[in-house]
Design a protein around this nucleic acid. Structure first.
Lengths: 144, 144
DNA sequence: TAACAATCTTGTAATGATTACAAAGATAGT
DNA sequence: ACTATCTTTGTAATCATTACAAGATTGTTA
């Protein structure tokens, strides 16, 4: 089992504040879920989970918060699943992602250094996304 | 200037036929455009271009053709741009892709061998997608 | 070559994620 | 407390994609 470090709300508040945004309850909730659950949720998954805790929460607010957090560089958008954007905490070691075709779960994977050197000279690279697709160990076991 | 090899319609017909599908005019047109123009078009771009040549063409047919061609392994779906699937010819050397944030053009790039070995043991990888984003040489020059 | 069955195409309607927008609510600084 | 600014909320719109059913085309068989 992997040890996870929980980011407290006051720490997240500080991060949001430093990014020049107001640390609203909703933004903290969104960022906290992404940072501490590490499930790479979609906007809709975030809404479903948080709506029970914050009954007045609007889907639009989740989208607004995500956009603001991405803009601030605190959150990163994953385009690993067609038609559904997933979100991951940004300030952490660079890594790649794997999505299981059966259960849909997204896992963190290693990312080799210097991949951007693969690019043809003359191109200015500011973002590298490496996505793997296949079957995860859990689903592989269950289907045997 | 890069030398391009044109795939004739009769060759594409054969490819489609071998894949167990009927080589309809529409499918050949879609595959031919993807194979010979190499612009990594979206479904909508394909529709716009081909509709002038085939006035009765339906958007649904473009989607149907793309699905069938992807299913057959002749065409590959790129998820490099959020909310817009792009399409590329599949049977060609493995490569990665770069999208320019300014002009939106997609370029082919190298792909290092053995990337799937990055994955954590126990995972079964059947697909590797490497995407770069940034500014292309053309747009870099024009903005200086 | 006529006829049947299977496969494709087409157009329209539906879906689902995301965005636009305007009004109501909350916050920070004076 | 006051005011300007920022944020949330709900509804309506958008846009790519999919579902579906009817009509057209093709391949096969006789």
């Amino acid at each position: 089992m992997q040890k996870t470090i929980s980011l407290t709300d006051s720490h997240l508040t500080e991060l949001i504040h430093k990014a020049g945004m107001r640390p609203s309850v909703q933004r903290i909730a969104v960022l906290s879920h992404i940072a501490n659950e590490r499930t790479h949720p979609t906007a809709d998954e975030l809404y479903s989970v948080l709506a029970s805790k914050y009954p007045s929460l609007s889907r639009t607010t989740v989208y607004n918060s995500l956009h603001a957090l991405v803009e601030a560089g605190l959150v990163r958008e994953l385009e690993i699943e067609s038609g559904n954007k997933h979100y991951d905490l940004a300030p952490q070691p660079e890594h790649s992602h794997f999505i299981c075709r059966i259960c849909g779960k997204i896992y963190d994977m290693a990312l080799p250094d210097g991949l951007e050197k693969m690019a043809t000279p003359g191109f200015c690279i500011d973002c590298v996304d490496l996505y793997f697709k296949g079957i995860c160990p859990d689903c592989n076991t269950n289907n045997n």
